[in-house]
Design a protein around this nucleic acid. Structure first.
Length: 728
DNA sequence: GAGTTTGAAACT
DNA sequence: CAGTTTCAAACTC
């Protein structure tokens, strides 16, 4: 028996963790011993000598990994690729050339992998945190905070550490890599495997990536991230050479990883050299966001991405879109992680918040001037809004400017514009100073976006009811608001939160985006400019407006009516309940359309359920002449759109080029946490996928086709992103 | 800007 | 769940 134990020990030593490598040396001493030989003979596993150790090991690890982590992993790998950029940025690493970048990736992975044990811990942590956030339905705040904390931590590490530890690790890794070219090869294979797997899953598809919904995202992200880490680990294992790395090293690497992701993300997002703002902005954002947005708004972050993406796509900002795209596709995992970390909270968010977060993503300006203390988030538009560039500057300047309102409006306008891709209004508006709330409002609306800055005129509700647009949007009232006895201010945060909670208890979806994007929205938009893709969550109940006025929430949101609507005499130009309307819209609207109905239902459910955070997007489209444009206030949806869009990034990316027309009308709010959870549900998955499905499936104009596509979606299981766009 | 209309939100 | 009231936005003049 004792022998057995010893043998086991020996085996354990051999098999084990990286730490074992250190032990390896001692083992080598015994290798020649008869006992050792005996043990070896007994054990299926062959003792590896220090030198060989790595590769065989790596092989093994690789073999095991794929099955489990493939899907996520793919994203990860890609993400890692994105990391390259970061690497390049590192001056310290001259070694990393373009080729080096690849190595760097692996190296990163290795470094991280090296600390498998520690990694696992770390790996799980992110996922856990995320999961928790996503899971926790009601505790948005807590979630946000937690996320923020995480994020901040990451940031902290990132910036400072990014260059430092990361590079160091890399250099080590690189060295290792060089030593083990064979490994690289294996790594490549691994990639291919992963890619294949991803393809199977549809993860990779460029377009697809995004389909992912918020909820899914949250989960996915973590998962993917984990996977990536795992992969890295695998590589690391192969590379075991670096036993030297310890847990700390892993952590660093992990952090670096995250950081890199962030950076890469930022870079991508920003299209332009964002400069410092990104980093600082990111952290600030989270903070600012928090304040500005009622705590509950966690959604913002994701939305931001989505919005950015959506906006970008819609806007014409192909680049911006691209920036986003990468995120979707590859960076998904990382990004999500980042996002979540950054600010992104799952938030469901307040529209404004979400928008701000999305847009800004990086710049949040606090305007304390405002009594409200609302922080304006200025998006660096850059990424998302090319045209915005000037706008941004203006905005920034504005922030300093005495009149906060103007600044806000501009910002909002900018955002709207960007999102809408409509004309760039910001500047003009800047010059304009609005006095009366209504005027302001109109202006804003005209600008295309009021969403960013909602203004209310409440007199009796104290801005603590859904009657109040600001409150409903999850935003604090600001000066421009003409409300009386307003409690929707940071000062009354407790009250606001309590009220919000109360309302949510009554209706968990109360703050969820009203307009949800249908699965197909994007494609439809692209193809036809239809608003159809998005739908109103609950549907309208119009009796006299014929759904042709903004009284109609559907119309206001730029979406067609759906079967959920109880409207009478619906003439919604975006799509009728009957579905008769525009073909485009028909898709979604088709109240009648069996298929359409299905979609709607599914969509609604998903949204409701998941509402938020992840929600992919609900893109609404502005494509059609939104009523908003004319009048102004674009439906909240716009804002929402941005935010919600996140999941869709992938799509957006795809769309970028062509999407200008389309604006995302997507859900305003992010979906509440609850929704997120729901998102996880197959349905949600479907939603997210829908975009993909579009791509996958051939375009269908006819109902039947739709139906088929929809069916497909349903059939698509839970993987949120995996499913191909139904619409296509 | 005042007044009306409208439909969502809230209440019963 | 349905009916009613309240509310504030949307709209009209």
């Amino acid at each position: 028996m004792g022998d057995d134990k010893d043998q086991d020990k020996e085996k354990a030593i051999v098999m084990d963790t990286p730490e074992r490598t250190q032990i390896a040396n001692p083992l080598s001493k015994f290798e020649d011993s008869p006992v050792f030989n005996y043990i070896n003979s007994l054990s299926p596993i062959k003792p590896v000598k220090s030198v060989h150790f790595t590769q065989p090991f790596s092989n093994i690890s690789f073999a095991s990994l794929p099955s489990v982590f493939t899907s996520p992993h793919v994203s990860t790998l890609k993400d890692s690729k994105f990391l390259r950029r970061h690497q390049f940025s590192d001056p310290s690493k001259p070694e990393l050339t373009s080729e080096g970048s690849k190595k760097a990736e692996t190296s990163e992975g290795n470094s991280t992998a090296a600390l498998n044990t520690s990694k696992q811990h770390t790996d799980f942590n992110p996922s856990n945190s995320i999961t928790e956030t996503s899971t926790v339905p009601l505790n948005r705040c807590s979630n946000l905070e937690s996320r923020k904390l995480n994020y901040e931590a990451v940031n902290l590490v990132g910036p400072s550490a990014s260059s430092g530890p990361f590079i160091n690790n890399r250099s080590e890794i690189d060295g290792i890599n060089q030593l083990h070219h064979g490994k690289e090869v294996s790594a490549v294979d691994w990639d291919s495997l992963i890619s294949d797997a991803s393809e199977l899953l549809n993860f990779d598809s460029p377009s697809d990536t995004v389909a992912y919904k918020g909820p899914g995202q949250s989960t996915l992200d973590p998962t993917s991230f984990n996977t990536s880490l795992m992969n890295v680990k695998a590589q690391a294992n192969s590379d075991n050479d670096n036993p030297s790395e310890n847990n700390e090293g892993l952590k660093d690497t992990v952090e670096n990883h995250l950081m890199v992701a962030d950076t890469s993300l930022n870079d991508f997002e920003v299209g332009e050299p964002v400069e410092d703002t990104d980093n600082e902005g990111g952290s600030n954002l989270s903070r600012g966001m928090r304040r500005r947005c009622l705590v509950f708004e966690m959604m913002g972050s994701r939305r931001k991405h989505l919005e950015d993406v959506s906006n970008g796509s819609n806007v014409n900002l192909s680049e911006s879109n691209q920036t986003v795209l990468p995120i979707n596709n590859n960076s998904l995992s990382l990004r999500t992680a980042n996002d979540s970390s950054k600010c992104k909270l799952p938030g469901i968010g307040l529209h404004l918040n979400s928008i701000a977060s999305n847009l800004v993503d990086h710049k949040v300006v606090k305007h304390e001037n405002l009594g409200s203390s609302r922080q304006l988030i200025i998006t660096p538009s850059s990424a998302a809004y090319p045209s915005m560039g000037s706008g941004q500057e203006l905005i920034t300047k504005l922030s300093d400017a005495p009149s906060f309102e103007n600044g806000i409006e501009h910002v909002q306008n900018v955002a709207d514009d960007a999102s809408k891709a409509l004309g760039f209004v910001g500047n003009d508006e800047l010059s304009q100073s609005q006095t009366s709330p209504r005027k302001k409002r109109r202006r804003v609306e005209n600008a295309g976006e009021a969403e960013a800055c909602k203004r209310c005129n409440c007199k009796k509700s104290k801005c603590l009811k859904l009657y109040c647009e600001c409150f409903a949007a999850g935003v604090y009232c600001v000066e421009p608001c003409a409300c009386h006895e307003c409690f929707n201010k940071p000062i009354h945060e407790d009250t606001v939160l309590a009220t919000r909670k109360q309302i949510e208890s009554r209706n968990p979806l109360a703050f969820a985006p009203k307009v949800i994007k249908t699965s197909d929205s994007i494609q439809e938009d692209e193809s036809s400019n239809t608003p159809a893709s998005a739908r109103h969550k609950r549907g309208c109940n119009c009796k006299k407006s014929g759904c042709l006025k903004k009284y109609c929430e559907c119309y206001q949101g730029g979406v067609g009516c759906s079967i959920n609507c109880r409207c009478e005499g619906c003439k919604n130009t975006f799509g009728r309940k009957d579905g008769s309307q525009m073909d485009l819209e028909v898709n979604e609207c088709e109240g009648n359309g069996n298929d359409g109905s299905l979609d709607m239902v599914l969509y609604n459910e998903a949204e409701q359920v998941s509402a938020t955070p992840a929600t992919p997007s609900r893109f609404g489209r502005q494509s059609i002449p939104l009523p908003n444009s004319s009048k102004g206030k674009p439906p909240r949806s716009f804002l929402t759109i941005g935010s919600s869009s996140v999941p869709r990034f992938g799509k957006l990316n795809h769309f970028k080029g062509g999407m200008n027309k389309q604006l995302q009308t997507v859900g305003e709010n992010e979906i509440p946490d609850i929704l997120e959870e729901n998102n996880r549900s197959p349905i949600s998955g479907v939603k997210s996928c829908s975009p993909n499905s579009k791509r996958v499936s051939p375009p269908h104009s006819s109902m039947g086709q739709r139906s088929s596509r929809k069916l497909i979606l349903q059939s698509i299981p839970s993987f949120p992103c995996l499913t191909p766009n139904p619409k296509q």
